[in-house]
Design a protein around this nucleic acid. Structure first.
Length: 255
DNA sequence: TTTCATGTTCAGCA
DNA sequence: GTGCTGAACATGAA
C-alpha cells in the first residue's frame, strides 16, 4: 500500500467516518501498537471529527486526542463489516454497528494514541509534507547535506511522504543519479526535483495509484533491473542506497 | 528453497 | 555531530 498517494486515498476513504462515535476497540495483534493499549482504549465513546495526513502518517482526530495510524509496508483499512481475516490487527466498532478493520500481514504498521498531532510530529521528528513544502525549505534540506540525494528524499524528518518508488521516479524524471550528494545539486536541478516529486505524487493520485494508467514514460511502469529505459532504451540498473534498492537508468542519470 | 518487497528504528562503527 | 551498514520486525509472492 503505502507511500503518500496510497495513504492519501486511505485518508479520503475514512472521511465518511466523521461524526461516528467509537464504541469498542479490539486489539488482535498487540505488536503493532505504538502506545500502550490502555491509551488507545480510552478513545472508546469519543466521536471522530476529522481525518488528517502528514507524509505517510494518518491521524483520526477525535473530540479529544487522535488515533495515529501508519500503514507500514502492507497495512490496509477495511470499512464496513467485521473482517475475519487473520491479519486484522486492530478493529474499531462504531456506534452505528459498522467496523474499521486494520489489516496488516507483515505487521510493520503502527496504531496508537496521541494527545495532539503537533506532539506526535515533534516526538517522531516528522518533516513537512512533501506536497506542502515550499521550494525554499526543500532546497535548504537538499543543499544542506552531503548525503546521497536519494537518502535525503527518503528521510521522513526532512520531508515526509516520499518512499522508495516515488523517490526513484522523481530522480528519473529529473535525470539525477541517486547517489548525487545533495549539496552538489544546482539551483536548477533542485527546483526541477522539487517540481518532479510533487508532480509524480499528484499524477499517481489522479489515477487512483493505478500504475498501469500512468504514462509509459514513467519509470514506475518499468521498474526492474535489466529492462529497457522508457526514454533511451538503455538497460536499467539497480543500486542499494540507504538500504533500499534504487532502480535507475545509468545513461540518463549519469553521476 | 531462496530471495526480495511501496517502511521505520536502532545498534555499532568510522 | 555526521553518515553509513546491517539487522530486526513478519509474511507472502515470485
Amino acid at each position: 500500500m503505502p507511500e503518500l498517494p496510497e495513504v492519501e486515498l486511505v485518508r479520503r476513504s475514512l472521511l465518511p467516518l466523521r461524526g461516528r462515535r467509537i464504541g469498542s476497540i479490539e486489539i488482535l495483534h498487540p505488536s503493532i501498537l505504538s502506545t500502550p493499549a490502555k491509551l488507545l482504549e480510552t478513545t472508546a465513546g469519543r466521536r471522530i471529527v476529522e481525518v488528517r495526513r502528514r507524509g505517510k502518517q494518518l491521524f483520526i482526530l477525535l473530540e479529544e486526542g487522535a488515533i495515529t495510524l501508519h500503514l507500514g509496508m502492507t497495512g490496509q483499512v477495511r470499512l464496513g463489516a467485521e473482517s475475519q481475516d487473520k491479519h486484522v490487527a486492530v478493529r474499531l466498532r462504531f456506534d452505528d454497528g459498522s467496523y474499521l478493520n486494520y489489516v496488516d500481514p507483515r505487521r510493520f504498521g503502527a496504531v496508537g494514541y496521541a494527545t495532539a498531532i503537533e506532539d506526535f510530529v515533534k516526538d517522531h521528528r516528522l518533516g513537512e509534507d512533501i506536497l506542502e513544502i515550499g521550494l525554499e525549505p526543500f532546497s535548504r534540506q537538499v543543499k544542506g547535506s552531503r548525503r546521497a540525494i536519494k537518502t535525503i528524499l527518503l528521510d521522513q524528518g526532512k520531508m515526509a511522504g516520499l518512499g522508495n518508488l516515488y523517490a526513484d521516479e522523481a530522480l528519473f524524471q529529473t535525470y539525477l543519479h541517486p547517489l548525487r550528494p545533495g549539496i552538489s545539486l544546482s539551483e536548477q536541478e533542485t527546483r526541477a526535483l522539487w517540481r518532479a516529486a510533487r508532480r509524480v505524487l499528484r499524477r499517481s493520485l489522479s489515477v487512483g495509484t493505478d500504475f498501469s494508467q500512468l504514462p509509459g514514460t514513467y519509470l514506475l511502469r518499468h521498474r526492474a533491473k535489466g529492462r529497457p529505459c522508457p526514454r533511451c532504451r538503455g538497460r536499467l540498473d539497480s543500486l542499494v542506497v540507504g538500504g533500499r534498492t534504487s532502480i535507475f537508468c545509468p545513461s540518463c542519470q549519469a553521476v
